[in-house]
Every structure is written in C-alpha cells, then in structure tokens.
C-alpha cells in the first residue's frame, strides 16, 4: 500500500450516500398512480400469457461454466504477470505450459460445439444417424430431409 487506504472507504461511503440520496429524492417527489393495469408486467400492451420463468437456452449455462473455468485460470496468469521479469525464463516456461493447457481446453470445448449456439451441423448429423436406425422418413422443421441436403452450418434455419 503506497498510502493510507482510508480515502477509499470515504469514497465508497460518498458513492453509497449519493445513490441512496437519489433514490430518496425520487421517492419523495415522484407521483403515485393506481389504475387497472398498473400492477401488470409489461408485455408490449397485451395481457401476459405463459410461464414467467420457463425453459431457457442451455448455452447460457454453458457460458457460465466456461467463465468459472477460464476466469480462474486467468487469475493464475495475473500472478505471473506481476513478477514476469523476476521469474525469468523459468517462470516464463511455466506460464507457457499453463497457457498451452488452457489452449487445449479451449480447443476441446470449441470442437465439442460448446461455443456454438443453436443447431450445428454436427448436432444435425448426429440426430440423422439416430433417426436412420428407426427407418422413419427424416424431417427437419417439417420438411422431408435426406442426407446430402445442404444445411446452414450454424444458427437456426
């Protein structure tokens, strides 16, 4: 610490005070309404339907998982960056090994399709292989589908 850290705490207190003050003033000055549709969630002017917390794309979860893995690894690199010169070439070699491991993980996830959203070519082909054994005509979004029909590589059709 190059100086006392207490100004930081004062700064934090000022920031919290400002935020609280703004909230309080707005609460005091704001108008009040209570009409028929005031208590409804906004759904572009129509009456809301369906489940509020329905099913969501699994990819949001995958991104969260990737973040936990890679941000931790990044934290290890922070520790190297600050002592890069003192650690010398030995430290650099260690960092490089770590970096390669990280890169291998990234390439693996990439190849697995964890970074792609929606239906990928691999997923479609896997589904086709599964269907083929059941001997029923394959349809994709209601359209009869044969092997070799060109499909988009990524995203929804």
């Amino acid at each position: 610490m190059t100086g006392a850290a207490w100004p930081l705490l004062v700064h934090l207190a000022v920031a919290i005070g400002l935020a609280a003050g703004m909230m309080a003033v707005s609460h005091l000055l704001g108008e009040r309404h209570r009409e028929r549709a005031t208590g409804e969630p906004y759904e572009s002017g129509i009456v809301g339907t369906g489940e509020l917390r329905g099913r969501l794309s699994i990819n949001f979860y995958v991104v969260g998982l990737l973040f936990v893995i890679f941000d931790l690894e990044a934290a290890f690199l922070f520790a190297w960056a600050i002592v890069a010169v003192e650690a010398g070439w030995a430290g650099y070699a260690g960092m490089l090994v770590f970096l390669v491991l990280l890169g291998v993980g990234l390439v693996y996830e990439w190849r697995q399709g964890a970074l792609d959203w929606g239906r990928t070519r691999r997923a479609i082909e896997r589904a086709l292989a599964a269907r083929e054994s059941s001997r029923r005509p394959v349809t994709l979004a209601g359209v009869p589908f044969e092997r070799g029909t060109p499909v988009g590589t990524k995203g929804r059709r």
Binding site: S26, L29, G30, E31, R32, H33, T38
Partner: peptide
C-alpha cells in the same frame, strides 16, 4: 426523471 412515478412493481 425526478418527478416521474417511482414505481416498484
């Protein structure tokens, strides 16, 4: 903004 309704759903 200050005079708008401070609505908590």
């Amino acid at each position: 903004l200050l005079f708008k309704e401070d609505w908590i759903p």
